[in-house]
Amino acid sequence: MNKKALSAPYVIWIIGGTLIPLALMLYYGLTDGEGSFTLSNILAIGEPGHLKALLTALLLAAVSTLICFLLAFPIAVLLRRVKRAKGLIIFLFLLPMWMNFLLRTMAWQVLLEKGGVINSIISWLGFEKLRLINTPGAVIMGMVYDFLPFMLLPINNAVSKIALSTTEAAYDLGASEMQVVFKVVLPLSVPGIVSGITMVFVPALTTFVISNMLGGGKIYLIGNIIEQEFTVGDNWNLGAGLSIVMMVFILISMLFIAKFDKDVEEDLAI
């Protein structure tokens, strides 16, 4: 019938483009080169190098997610009070998101490089040059810069949905400005915050680009290990096994989002 014809291409695409590939990922992860079942690719996460990469990725992702939240929540609260040219100001905050992701990351490389802009300014001022690039700090900086809009967007959507009368009622009942923010605005924006956290944490946890470009091959994240196994290392089974381990963390954050927030659609509305 009608509806079947309309949804058929989608069904084909979901099966061919999402389900089969993920099943293959599972297959590769759970078999060895000869195709027989093994858990060794999964258990390989316990090897010191792999474990360190996973823990580093978790740590850097957590830190940059926290920084993104600490930066974005006040922005959303302040934007709510903007009266003139509100659309334009919000546009200004989200514009960098549309710029190519690699160019944005590259820009930080240019800024942080030994002979880069920041160090040139520092030495022009007569100070000793600093080692900025190829540090965990540089990677965190890149993550925050690249993913801040993804935190800001859902939080801003949630905060701007809070009716003005709701906060006015809180003032009316004697709450101070800070109390209004922490007792009314913050709890009401939890769904947006949760989406924001997931939308920053997952790409930060799994990135290999940022760590490659700003970590200079010195900082290995789990994403780097996986990428290498698939490209240089050529051990696809191991790469798939480590991907499965990483997916467990993604799955946890998906469940987290499902628990707090039913409507992903609204959070991502631009």
Partner: peptide, 27 residues
């Protein structure tokens, strides 16, 4: 079910999406 499936590529990590598609093409 459709909407849940729709969220997979959306929330999944790009690296997993990319690698799993590559595996499918190769397979």
């Amino acid at each position: 079910a459709f909407l849940a499936l729709n969220n997979i590529p959306l929330l999944n990590a790009d690296i997993v999406t990319g690698l799993s598609l590559m595996l499918a093409f190769v397979a």
